[in-house]
Amino acid sequence: MSVLVDKNTRLLVQGITGKSGAFHARGCRDYGTQVVAGVTPGRGGERFDDTIPVFDTVAEARKETGCNATMIFVPPPGAADGILEAADAGVELIVCITEGIPVMDMMRVKEALRDYPGTRLIGPNCPGIITPEQCKIGIMPGYIHKAGNIGVISRSGTLTYEAVWQLTSRGYGQSTCIGIGGDPINGTSHLDAARLLAEDEGTEAFILIGEIGGTAEEEAAGWLADHCRKPVAAFIAGATAPPGRRMGHAGAIVSGGQGTAEGKIKALEAAGIAVAKSPATMADTLIAKIKG
C-alpha cells in the first residue's frame, strides 16, 4: 500500500524537452514509472527518445494518453501557468519540481486551485514523490529507496534522501516518501501529508522532516496529537541558523521570533513525537519509537 502514486500512475512531464526535464523524465522511466506523455509548447507531434509522445498542451496529452499525474520542470516565470494548465486539464496529481517561483504567483495558484478539488499539488521547489519499486515522480536517486511500510515527509530534498538512506541501510523500506518543498506557500502542507500517511494502511510509522520558518510543523503536530497513534519521529533543520536570514529555501527564515527550531521541537515533543537530536539519527529515532 502507498499514497498518491503507485504502479498504475500514468505520468506526464511538463518541460520534457528541457535539460532537467529530459534528464529526469528518463530517470523516472528507467525506475519503472509509466511516463506516457510530455508537453512542450511548440514541440507537439515530436516523440521524446523516439517513444514518448510530446504535445503542445496538457489538455491534449490528457485526452490522448489518460495521464493522471504530471511532473513540472517549467522554468520559474512559466511554472505557475504550467500548474494551472494541468489543473484545468483535470490532472489529479501535480508535482512541481521548479525552484524559484515568485511567492505572489503561488498565492494566486493556491487560491485558484480551490476551484479544482480533484487536483492535488505537491511542491513547488520539491524533490517529488516516490512509492519505492512502483513509481518515482521527481529528482530523487531511486536506488536509495526500498519498498516497505515507513513513510517520509519533508520540506527538503537532500535531507529526505538522508533519512531514506538511513532507513534503507537499516533494513526498513518505505511506503511513500513525499517531498512537500521548501517554499513559503505550497500545495500540500506537512499536515496534509501527515494526514495521508496516518490514514494509509500500508504505512506503519513515519518520519516528518521540517525546518525553520512558518508554523506548518506545529500545525501537523497539533493534528497528529489528536488523530494518530502510529509511531512518528521528526527532525527540524536550522537550529544553528541566524535569525532574519533566508537559509536557501525561500521559506526557511526565522522572523520576529516565529518559526524557530526550538519552538517546533517543543510542539512536536508535546504531541508525543520523538525528535531526533542529530540529522544522522532520524531513522534510529523512529526505529526506537517503533520498538517502543
Partner: peptide, 29 residues
C-alpha cells in the same frame, strides 16, 4: 553542501558534535 535542508542540517550536526560552522553554503541542484 547541496540542498538547503541538508546544508542547515550539516551546520546543526557540526554544532552537535562540538564544532562551529563558518557558513551556510548550498551549491544547489
Amino acid at each position: 553542501v547541496n540542498g538547503a535542508g541538508l546544508a542547515m542540517a550539516t551546520m546543526d550536526i557540526i554544532k552537535y558534535h562540538g564544532g562551529n560552522p563558518a557558513n551556510f553554503l548550498d551549491v544547489g541542484g
